[in-house]
Design a protein around this nucleic acid. Structure first.
Lengths: 253, 253
DNA sequence: AACGCATGGTGTAATTGGTACACAATTGTA
DNA sequence: TACAATTGTGTACCAATTACACCATGCGTT
């Protein structure tokens, strides 16, 4: 929550540079130690969590806006982004509106208006992210999909819609490529699929099918260190992956 | 194109009731005589065609806005609508902006601003539609997918994105149900699939698979009148259709 | 009324793809 | 060195898809 002075300062700039009524909210997915993670921010002085977001500059393409917003939150430059839905219920930011309602007159209060939010999901390599809080948050951090906090506003809905979209697009978007590190083992990739699909897959059939797509390069090395047989490392063959995705990876999971 | 007076009148009302910066554009699909059709409008005094669209009332949910807009254009009440993308290039309505630029000062000109447009596609039963022009058009009519006119603004992009989405969602949305009339023959339904997928399908395998989904009711009657064997009529079993779509109609086309 | 033609309806063999396993290989540890 | 846990590969079985053949039906023609 902002102080009156901070609100005044924010308004002075925001009303100059941003479009009214339009916001962007992003669901940033990362995959780490076999768990799916979402990047979230925690409000100052409150146990309220929200998704990274922001506004659109007056002459900025919306994709660029999402890029810019996430560059600041993650440090990543060319982030993989997909628009997935607009959230436009008239009272979706009611709590937010009322929080700042009495602090400034309506004409000077950027937050006292209806916002229609464009939802993007982003896929990142977990290790490349440097989580950075914004002006309204004291904390920016990864949260595990199995241990999510209470969401502010309609951000729970936005998150869930993003996850559903991810599931539906698994055979049509380079989701593995963007969430996995450069090199990975087959069991690691399988864990990603199992997490997104929320079901167990047969180890042996998964491997054969993945290899059958012809989108993986088998590397010479293996991942040593585990207490057991060392699995081979793979990387994606991006050209083949893209080509295969055009038709959709044949017959779903 | 509006006259100065019409523009003034439009502005007086629009700026009172609509949100700034936000518009809605709809791609309305219909299916008639084995051909896919799109509902389009033709500008007054110009050979420029565009998609039905409009703006969002200040306290209106965006889905309601799309509903309201299409109710006026088609006469249909509960239309099947799906949001599919937002179009937010900063210069997307440049031509439109400049057309009216000099007629009124910026503060009194609803059209002299950047619009971010929310794209919806709609599916309707061709025969239920009563195409009705809006204030800027002299004509509202169906156009064949194989004989499309020149589009205004970025409406060609919007249309193509809608069609791509339709193709991708064929196994996940009740597309057949909403585009076909209550009763239809198997060859008619097959034609719809072939049109959307843009490829020929085997007559016999199509029939068996469709029936295999258990989403069709075979009716007693046949469609007489053709010069050949009369095909059976079918209707959708909506409950089963919806249930099957949740998982997606198994393994694509 | 008999015939032919174009189209719709049903059946089936061959192929492909998915599923459910068995078994061998490898790695660190006891 | 044996063992436990995990990975890599092979295979038999079942289900689904494909590519057809063949029959049925309705209308037009002779």
């Amino acid at each position: 929550m902002l102080t009156k002075q901070e609100l005044e300062e924010f308004w002075a700039e925001a009303s100059e540079i941003y479009l009214n009524h339009i916001s962007i909210d992003c669901v940033v997915f990362g995959f780490h130690e076999g768990q799916m993670k979402v990047l979230m921010l925690k409000s100052n002085n409150e146990e309220a969590w929200y998704l990274p977001g922001g506004f659109v500059l007056k002459k900025e393409p919306i994709e660029k806006a999402a890029d810019r917003i996430l560059k600041i939150r993650t440090g990543i430059d060319k982030i993989f982004l997909q628009q997935f839905r607009v959230f436009g219920a008239p009272d979706r930011s009611k709590i937010h509106n009322e929080m700042y309602k009495d602090m400034l007159p309506k004409e000077q209060n950027f937050f006292d208006q209806r916002f229609i939010s464009i939802g993007y999901y982003a896929l990142v390599d977990f290790f490349n992210v440097n989580p950075t809080p914004d002006d309204f948050s004291e904390l920016c951090t990864w949260r595990d999909l199995n241990d999510l906090p209470k969401f502010q506003l309609d951000h729970r809905l936005i998150f869930e819609t993003a996850l559903d979209t991810l599931r539906l697009q698994l055979n049509y978007q380079p989701i593995g490529y963007n969430l996995m590190p450069k090199e990975f083992t087959m069991p690691e990739l399988q864990k990603l699929y199992e997490t997104i699909l929320d079901k167990k897959l047969d180890r042996r059939n998964f491997q054969r099918r993945m290899l059958g797509f012809g989108i993986l390069n088998k590397l010479e090395q293996t991942r040593k260190g585990g207490a057991h047989k060392a699995p081979y490392l793979y990387s994606f063959d991006l050209d083949n992956y893209q080509a295969a995705l055009k038709e959709g990876l044949k017959s779903g999971w």
